[in-house]
Nucleic acid binder design. Structure first.
Lengths: 315, 315
DNA sequence: CCCTGCTCATAAACCCAGCTTATGACGTCA
DNA sequence: TGACGTCATAAGCTGGGTTTATGAGCAGGG
């Protein structure tokens, strides 16, 4: 019983999880980007390593799938239609996410004998490192990178055992035995669904009010939770949480669906803020800021590839 | 001559454009997310509408492809490994980009008889609208949306001809015959590669210095170019551009590769700023801000689905 | 203690999407 | 008019991902 195409009048909860039926696969999207760059199906085909008929057929089936003409064919080449340009822009974002995935996955697989061995905390590995690795690949294409993710203690241990060349940690202090520099900041953002009353406030929130309000939070012991506890200890301490969830994603989902205000790393909610699925609530006079640092064993400043990476993260 | 797997020691310029050989396809990524949610291969399989053996095989081949164990199998279910959790986070970003693509593409295809007909400027259609459509689908799953992208004049024309129910424009003024409200702001950002001297400045840039410096820009007549011209007209006017390029993407690429400072919508460079592939240069005393407005024919405040959408964009 | 029910793995057969090669039609330009 | 570029069409092959059928391992209850 093959799954047949449903009519598309309605998408309930089931819509999620069937995306690959309605979104062209990565190969097709890469092909589309190549067509945009080269203005020719044949040239694009060459670029992605297939033949011209294959490219022609693939673009055509993508147009059928989307129900939109993407390309204006002419004997002198092919240009994107207006709709095609828009689709290509959206496609580019998928491909960029795939590049980040690839860079990260490659490092994750990288064996211990890589030229550059990185140890990083979860937040950094998740949000920042892929971008850095892409930049590094652009500048030094032959640097093989391996990545080990873990908390500050793990990072320190790896560095001190000379099993990593450079580390990245988030936290209030630099672990013993390590030197470091701040490479970025991770502010905690108070976020709520746009429908929440806080989203309509004129002025910033009072710290005491924040502390007194039940929030959606990560469980006790998580990094963000620690920073929040510390910041609000002088304002009466944190109220009983509204929800305690195990993952950043779960917290985000709860906030988006309107369960209540949540506190999350700015890095984690950047996209939701941009599209206004969430709104940031300013708070007055509390420092919800956490330093992200590159670290190395005291006295052993990074050299070689590690230095290349470090210089990327600081500009 | 089949393309055989190259050794992966080195990736030069050719790495781009072969992503789909190293990144699992969307179906596999969705399956992985489902495994993360349900903690079971079989349940995940059911969720995405395939059988358990298919899921098992697919996860296994994904692990082979990435060279990393993603899932810890046990007779009581399956949990992600540490590496698997990281991979899943990266995968989620691809899937989210695919959701935005899908929401946009669906609207692009939508016929004129859709319940909600939207006309939007390019910047808004490209960056903001997909997120809004996802949110709208979450709240009103049965609202069929159609999208027409075009400049302010096109948007106005559609609205006045009653061929669109709501419009979105970017620009200095509201077109004649329309009413509107500001739903977001689009600041122009001065950006440069982290290696550029401006990235190391202590203080903000002087407007006159900005005006006097050759920049990488969109061609004359583009929206961002107009705003920039207007803002700097009082400071000696814009210098001869360093490069004039036809697309936002091309400008971004030039800036990232270090050609020189560029001026782009904040929306267009948010991701690059996050990963520090580009750095924003603050400028003093110039208003590089552009309002993004929802608009409708004077006197015809949006009702029904259009009103739902409008309320999403404003909170 | 064994049975039932959950888990995941393996094996064999099948199907179709996308590939290649070969060819053709259409425009443009010298 | 002929050469070169474009894209389209047709026929045949291949392989990845699917299905069904089956088995093995572990947990908990009668």
């Amino acid at each position: 019983m093959s799954r047949e195409a449903r009519g598309d009048e309605t998408y309930g909860a089931e819509a999620r999880g069937q995306l690959h039926h309605r979104v062209p696969d990565l190969g097709a999207l890469e092909l589309l980007l190549a067509v945009a760059r080269y203005g020719s199906l044949g040239a694009a085909a060459r670029e992605v390593g297939i033949t011209q008929p294959a490219a022609s057929s693939r673009i055509r089936s993508m147009e059928r799938q989307l129900g939109v003409a993407l390309v204006d064919r002419s004997p002198r080449g092919s240009r994107l239609t207006d709709a095609g340009a828009l689709v290509t822009d959206w496609a580019r974002r998928i491909v960029e996410a795939a590049e980040a995935f690839d860079a990260g996955a490659q490092a994750l697989r990288g064996r211990r004998d890589s030229r550059l061995r990185v140890a990083a905390s979860m937040t950094i590995a998740e949000y920042l490192l892929p971008g850095w690795l892409i930049a590094l690949r652009a500048e030094r294409p032959d640097t093989a990178v391996s990545l080990q993710a873990g908390n500050s203690a793990v990072v320190a241990e790896r560095l001190l055992a000379n099993e990593a060349d450079i580390g990245f940690v988030e936290g209030l202090a630099v672990p013993d035995g390590l030197d470091g520099v701040v490479v970025a900041h991770d502010r905690l953002a108070i976020v709520a669904a746009p429908s929440h009353p806080w989203a309509r406030r004129r002025g910033p929130l009072d710290p005491a009010e924040l502390a007194a309000t039940p929030l959606v939070l990560r469980e006790r012991g998580s990094g963000t939770r620690q920073v929040l506890d510390a910041a609000l200890s002088g304002h009466g301490g944190l109220a009983q949480p509204l929800l305690e969830l195990a993952s950043t994603t779960a917290v985000k989902a709860a906030a988006v669906s309107g369960a209540g205000p949540a506190v999350l790393s700015e890095l984690a909610v950047a996209e939701e803020l941009g599209s206004r699925r969430l709104v940031a609530i300013p708070v007055e006079g509390v420092l919800l800021r956490r330093d992200l640092r590159a670290v190395w064993p005291t006295g052993h400043r990074p050299t070689g590839p590690a230095r290349d990476l470090l210089s990327l993260t600081r500009g």
